[in-house]
Design a protein around this nucleic acid. Structure first.
Lengths: 347, 347
DNA sequence: ATGAAAGCGCTAACAT
DNA sequence: ATGTTAGCGCTTTCAT
């Protein structure tokens, strides 16, 4: 009784400190180890008496004990956290991908710290450093153009890694992507078979696998049908997409030979591109047809026919987490998943 | 010399362990404390000799030392991490808000762990527990309907907290919101003065401050002009928004008295609503005008006139972080910021 | 100018 | 069945 009062009184005094396992132990007159066993569920297998377990749990509750995961992490060497690096989480595509990664991670009891690169190499490097120093148990990232050496910092330290959306072909690591080349070729062919001949492609200018494949899928198909006009392949700068797109659309509108369709290589490019098409009084689909790589929720409000490519974002995010977990559980297999995409239409 | 070799050899052996300050200390034959002082920049003020500093830094570099932030956190009691809880990060609005929070936090040297509630109270509670146990230094959250007692768990532990987008009126905590009531009233009045009489309002059915104010702003204004028809105030369920919206639009279309405009209380509702308007062959703006609370990137592709309300998302996110920082630095002031919004048009 | 050592809260191996 | 203790890697105070 005396002890109890003293224990509580002491706690009362040093307001600041949160209640720790030691406090519970003192209160009960047992050792810290016992508390740890009970509270971390390792008391089963008869290690600790039913009686004790009950008392510990009750006291913990009563004292409003909350475990300190930082201390636990330092001790176990696991943080139960995975790091995610995307281009820009405000982009619906990456936001959605992140969402599914988070929800899946949650199922495994993991939380996620997300960071953005804005497609910038320095940022990418900084974020990797931060995540590594924070001792995340694994990393899922969207590769940034030219960042192989940065990615290598992760693999060299044997931290599980899964690339998503794109991959470094010269890095031995798992990845989850879609069949960018195949679907781009298929879509282009679809346009051609529909009778469209003058087809433009608008894409960011940086060279990550996904974009290279999309461009090439279009180009190869156009070549195959002898319809390739290099002047219609427009590469725009990520940092200046608004201006570059405006210019590109303007150029296409005024091309001496009328353009029949534009293949936009990603969602933001599509939205901005269509905006400028309207500003240039280009009617869709009467003047030109449009293709969007990615599905956008707000297609519906456009009320025009759109050909689009839908990626299984949810499955991709979930699979990325699944693979990462396997690696975190010791698997040394590097897995590569290439998901199928679907060619769809809105009329 | 002998020592050096031994040090490296030992490291070579136990491959698994990362290099720690102790390793550098051993290598240099000095104490751990010295290394810590140098590497954490507290060597200035002449505590440690120039000479030593140079050697330590060089060796750290050479041995490829990376600090363990977990250990540092346990020692300092600070994790340099802030927790962010939003409804759903795949929602462009929250994605964008999160992005700006992250970028601003980065400026202060903090990283962010984000989690989603999906507007669900249990999830909200779980996420708070997780963040608290992870010892985040502060939390920014979007309140969930009826979660006051959960929020109180944070304030009771004196963890800095900033609410964003909405707030609990009965909780003493900082918040960053917009003038929801004022702008909704103003917008409604704008419609009325334009000559529109039969105005419908479509909003989620849960009662968080932002939505209550938006609804009420519309309702009060309609009443004031004697134009309120309670049948035109539609509350839809978050979980079943697709069905409910479909039904709502159908009802409005078939209302005996033609409807002139629909005020959509948030972006997803707007997108889905407009989709069903088109499906019901309702022309915008000929048959009905539309208002969207929030700006959407893809408005441009709709190519129809839209009246919308733009929130200063970036400023809000940044301010939330600024205030949080003040509190984390010891300020006990609770600050409330109500940002102005803008009524805008696309024609 | 640098060393020594205690301590952050928890886990886990080893004692009893 | 429960206690003891040595870490985990870093910070920080007090010695020297």
């Amino acid at each position: 009784m005396q002890d109890k009062l003293t224990g509580l009184a002491v706690l009362e005094m040093k307001k600041k400190r949160k209640v720790s396992m030691q406090d519970i132990a003192d209160q009960l007159g047992v050792s810290k180890g016992t508390i740890s066993l009970v509270l971390s569920g390792k008391a089963e297998s008869g290690r600790i008496s039913e009686e004790m377990c009950r008392k510990v749990r009750a006291t913990a509750e009563e004292m409003n004990y909350q475990p300190n995961e930082i201390a636990r992490s330092l001790s176990t060497g696991k943080t139960m956290t995975i790091g995610v690096i995307v281009s820009d989480i405000s982009n619906e595509f990456f936001g959605s991908m992140t969402f599914h990664i988070q929800e899946q991670a949650k199922k495994y009891g993991y939380t996620v710290v997300t960071t953005n690169t804005n497609e910038n190499l320095d940022e990418f490097n900084k974020m990797v450093t931060i995540l590594l120093n924070k001792q995340v148990d694994g990393i899922i990232f969207v590769p940034v153009d030219n960042g192989q050496h940065i990615a290598a910092r992760i693999t060299k330290r044997h931290i599980p890694l899964v690339q998503i959306d794109r991959f470094y072909s010269d890095l031995e690591a798992s990845y989850i992507v879609v069949d960018n080349y195949k679907i781009s070729a298929k879509t282009t062919e679809h346009l051609i078979l529909k009778g469209l001949k003058r087809i433009a492609v608008i894409c960011y200018d940086f060279d990550v696998s996904a974009l290279i494949e999309r461009r090439q899928g279009c180009i190869d198909t156009l070549s195959k049908y002898n319809l390739l006009d290099p002047g219609l392949i427009k590469n725009i700068r990520y940092q200046y997409q608004e201006e570059d797109l405006k210019q590109a659309i303007h150029d296409l509108k005024n091309n001496s030979d009328k353009i029949d369709a534009i293949f936009f290589c990603s969602r933001k490019v599509f939205i901005t591109g269509v905006k400028y098409m309207y500003k240039n009084a280009i009617s869709i689909p009467e003047d030109m047809e449009v293709v969007c790589f990615d599905k956008i929720d707000s297609f519906a409000i456009a009320n025009i026919p759109i050909i689009y490519i839908e990626q299984p974002i949810r499955k991709m995010g979930e699979k990325a987490v699944d693979i990462l977990m396997e690696q975190m559980n010791g698997s040394n297999d590097r897995k590569q998943f290439v998901f199928d995409t679907e060619l769809k239409y809105i009329n």
